[in-house]
Design a protein around this nucleic acid. Structure first.
Lengths: 261, 261
DNA sequence: AAGATTGTGTCAATATATGGAATAGATGTA
DNA sequence: TACATCTATTCCATATATTGACACAATCTT
């Protein structure tokens, strides 16, 4: 049809699936609503037909994204939140954090770790080896207890109220420095929260110090931590302070990068 | 066209917009993927045509739900997370928490508050008046500083590492009981985290005690708090303990209800 | 009880999404 | 270098799946 080309419309706006677009518009509109909305209200807001809106709502309901309450008010379910959680769980942290890890590596020369929480442990998902001729202890994919290492303690402190009861009975000792009493853990977590970074003074491996700072989403949710591991032979107090500041700066940088994502 | 005879498929189950369905399937598949997926890979996984998959990806890209990385790998953006945040922001907490608030009211007989965080304050979004002939102090819509009241302190403790630096310079005093030093706040927050509920001993209004416990999403994110306000004339130590336990139980109940939502 | 809302079904018309084939680019192999 | 085999992307005729107008029922207002 439209054989008479009087309307050269628009050249090449890549065609777009209108049904999908409308469906997502409906979902977003419901997400914005506090109380839920009716079919008619929605159709007016989005400038769609009532039938059309109804149909979209029906599909979204079947797919679980939307629920129609008691009366005829539709509202968004937490399904989109669940999906968001999986997105966050699959965020490519190594890529996002990469530049900051490299900076951190240059500034400190020590081994840099990127860790994510996994139950009551951290799992190392990326690292940069120390430039110094000292072997390193944790491979990518390896794990360590939350309460002993820099990255773990940073994560623990960032979500302490929730994790505390779980970890209270699991304060396994690894060295004579390991925190095994709940009282000492409480104190250490308070100090960590106050500082913004965590300090491990050989609490998991003898002679190995580590420092960590949490990586958070814009709303505060913890999704990982950056850390630096140092053989304590290398460590005087000045360097220790420098390293801590660097870690904190790097983690802050990653958080900012996440803001913009 | 297609004047040919009928095709008695089955059109009894409520028809569903297949384009929308497929588009959401694509989105979910990408959300599950760590590395991102290509068109062909997706089309095979979802049993769709390549052209079809490509078209869906194109529209999802335009709508901002998906991004095609450097080379031809598609992955989900944080847009679904942003939408999830608005859903959570608009959760009908009063309805969900209602039953637990009523139980709490019956158990204590005192004024029950439902509060949400708002910057460095709490805002009361629902309440149940005390059954006792004592007037109450905070209207729905009213607010109070995070660091002085039961609900606020519960929220503060639940997200302390993030909020601490913000509130450090804002410890305004209201009574001579108000916590105005960071050191005392740190201690109190540690104690609150350990207990699972917060105690306000007349720190906002003279003679008014309050108790609060945080409401969290399944992943730990704080979205509000339940609280009980009590004129201290009514309060002996036994009752105080009973009330604290009741608040804790009620808040836990709301959290569980959110799990199932 | 009448009237004005609403949500929910129906169904033909056609605009819309679709699948297949064609193109283009990239990577690997001989 | 040429060939083979992957990709992603575009094009287009076709029919299918979406659409909108209308009808109907169920509430709510008056």
């Amino acid at each position: 049809m439209t054989s008479s080309d009087v309307k050269p419309k628009d050249s090449k706006p890549p065609r777009i699936d209108t049904t999908l677009q409308k469906g997502l518009q409906v979902l977003e509109a419901l997400a914005r609503s506090e109380t839920g909305k009716g079919v008619t209200e929605l159709s007016r807001e989005l400038d769609l037909t009532k039938s059309n809106t109804f149909r979209l709502l029906q599909t979204l309901s079947i797919l679980g994204y939307v629920r129609s309450s008691e009366d005829k008010l539709y509202s968004a379910t937490l399904k989109v939140w669940q999906i968001a959680q999986t997105v966050i769980g699959n965020l490519d942290l190594p890529m996002i954090a990469g530049p900051y890890m490299r900076t951190l590596s240059q500034e400190t020369g020590e081994t840099i770790y990127l860790a994510v929480p996994d139950g009551l442990s951290v799992v190392y998902i990326d690292k940069i080896e120390s430039t110094k001729p000292i072997r390193t202890w944790n491979p990518i994919g390896g794990s360590a207890p939350l309460h002993c290492v820099g990255t773990g303690k940073a994560i623990l402190a960032a979500d302490f109220e929730r994790l505390r009861p779980q970890i209270a009975d699991n304060l396994v000792g690894y060295t004579d420095k390991t925190i095994t009493s709940l009282q000492r853990l409480d104190d250490d977590m308070a100090a960590t929260q106050a500082r913004g970074y965590a300090i491990d003074t050989g609490e998991f491996r003898e002679q190995v110090y580590s420092f960590g700072s949490a990586i958070r989403l814009p709303n505060g949710q913890v999704i990982g931590a950056l850390g630096v591991s140092v053989p304590d032979v290398n460590l005087d107090m000045d360097r220790r302070n420098d390293i801590c500041q660097s870690v904190l700066k790097a983690a802050t940088g990653v958080c900012d990068a996440l803001q913009k994502l």
